[in-house]
Design a protein around this nucleic acid. Structure first.
Lengths: 212, 212
DNA sequence: AAGAAAAGTTTCCTATAGGAAACTTTTTCC
DNA sequence: GGAAAAAGTTTCCTATAGGAAACTTTTCTT
């Protein structure tokens, strides 16, 4: 059975379960880099030529990978992920529920207030690097009325923040509220309840860095 | 620099990410299948011979992968994952270790502690807090001060930087120089030689956060 | 609908991954 | 400490991945 035959089979029979003596079963998924790559490329409206430029790989190579004519090496997969600005596992994982969150929302309870939701829009930075000691991200803090606050945000580790734009109020569980303007920063233990709200009319832009 | 040399370097200097305002991240990552494979195999107390039997791959192939002499194809990585009964991403993702903090401190900075060198003026932030996991500071990078970038800067840990004002060039020991404008950021292993110079006529203002 | 241009595929060749076996290093056991 | 066994590495060869360019198919354009 040649390679193409094998691939044809895989196409028809996506996955398979294998069990050992103790009946420990494991699934062998058909993890198709080709199909994933093609999906990602077409969703981003890229031609093979453009994808080639971004990844530094030959047009022909991309075509052959997409058509499952070859199995890419790991180094090629890294170039694909890097060049197309995706996480490496996306190349062989069916798009399911969003695993890495691009945004983290905090909802506050405000009884009687119709649209009383304070939303942070988080934009993760350096996401392609895994196992970082620090997690940097920018947040747009929507402008809102500063009296309405609810649940504290808490999480493991320490947090540093710097105000890039606007003016915010940093509310914490154990300290007085602090007003921070552009250029101001704060550092605190994130297990302490904390909350940032925009006190200016515009949204505020914040840089956060957390470390556990 | 031949392939082995590159791999040797990569071994020591894992990876780096550079992001612009739209969070388009260019990154060069070292996700070592070799080191991961060796770690998994030895932790499971398997010899190359046993791993070979389980995965159906040659002993020599496994050895070469572990020693980063070759980049395995995706189909080989699937055999590794399946045969060693692990998830595929484990082959290039380091297990994360977590630490716990008991401290509950917050410190605010409207003005920090200046500390000047020839090219940089450093302003340490959150100095009141000791034993932090992260060390944040702002630097004024003097404009076009090209004479003083003789030696690389190196230190333990990882470093994140964000350009607050101006335009700089991030020079690193093993990667192409990266031009960063206001809002751009970078994340890298600080044991790799690195250096920032201002390419605009004005001084540049940088936020740094380091963690060991 | 015909020609041109763009996108995608295949061919052909070179570079490199993977396997068998020889070789080297490390461990075990007396 | 030395021989034997086991574990790991390197060599050498074959199979296959990856790149350049020719070729085919699809999409515009008029």
């Amino acid at each position: 059975m040649d390679t193409q035959d094998k691939l044809d089979k895989l196409d028809k029979y996506p996955s398979m379960a294998v069990a050992d003596n103790e009946n420990n079963t494991r699934m062998i998924e058909k993890a198709s880099v080709g199909l994933q790559l093609k999906a990602i490329r077409t969703q981003n409206k890229l031609t093979l030529e453009e994808a080639s430029k971004r990844t530094g790989l030959a047009r022909s190579t991309l075509s052959k990978i997409e058509n499952e004519q070859i199995s890419p090496t790991f180094s090629v997969m890294q170039k694909l992920a890097s060049g197309l600005d995706i996480e490496l596992p996306q190349l062989f994982t069916k798009p399911k529920e969003s695993k890495v969150t691009g945004r983290r929302d905090v909802t506050l309870n405000n009884e009687g207030t119709p649209h009383a939701t304070l939303t942070y829009e988080h934009e993760l930075l350096a996401t392609q690097l895994r196992n970082k000691k620090m997690m940097p991200y920018k947040s747009r803090v929507h402008a809102r009325n500063f009296e309405h606050f609810g649940e504290w945000v808490r999480h493991e580790g320490e947090e540093f923040l710097l105000v890039l734009e606007g003016e915010v109020q940093l509310l914490t569980e154990f300290y007085e509220p602090a007003t921070l303007v552009e250029g101001d920063s704060a550092y605190y233990d994130a297990t302490m309840g904390h909350l940032v709200i925009s006190t200016s009319k515009k949204d505020a832009l914040i840089l956060w860095v957390t470390a556990e």
